[in-house]
Every structure is written in structure tokens, then in C-alpha cells.
Amino acid sequence: MNRIDTITQIVKEISGNDAAPDAGESLFESGYLDSFALPDMVSAIEKAFQIRIPDGDVTPRKFDSIERIAAYLESRA
């Protein structure tokens, strides 16, 4: 499973929505995630990719879409 697929799977699990959002779609504005679900998603990403995301990086801008999350993870690779 590639990075995008893994992130998509996490988003679907956290949102409880079987339909996958478009990679560039805002996870907030589309209603996939609310503010309280996002920390759960960040924790799931940390676990899946075995990284520790510093609090300073945990911003809505970096985690607003699957593409942005993938770009962030790429920057950490």
C-alpha cells in the first residue's frame, strides 16, 4: 500500500465514511473530519508511519487534505 492509499484508509477509518475523499479535497470543508477527529487522525498517522509529529507541525494547513498530508510526510522522509 502506498503512502496515499495508507492516508486514505486512515481518513476513512477515522471519519467512519466508506467513500474516499479526493486527494486534494479539504477534509474539514467536505465534512470528512471535524476538529475533534483530526487529532485522532494525526495519532493514527504517527502510528502507521512510525513517526513522531511535533506539536508545531500539527496545524490544520498541513493536515487539511490527503495531498497535504502526503506532502508533509514526504518532507519528513
Partner: peptide, 9 residues
């Protein structure tokens, strides 16, 4: 969103 994200961590 930022407040909640930071507070919950």
C-alpha cells in the same frame, strides 16, 4: 481547529 488540535494533544 488549531486550539482543539493543540489542546487535545
Amino acid at each position: 481547529r488549531s486550539v482543539i488540535m493543540q489542546a487535545t494533544r
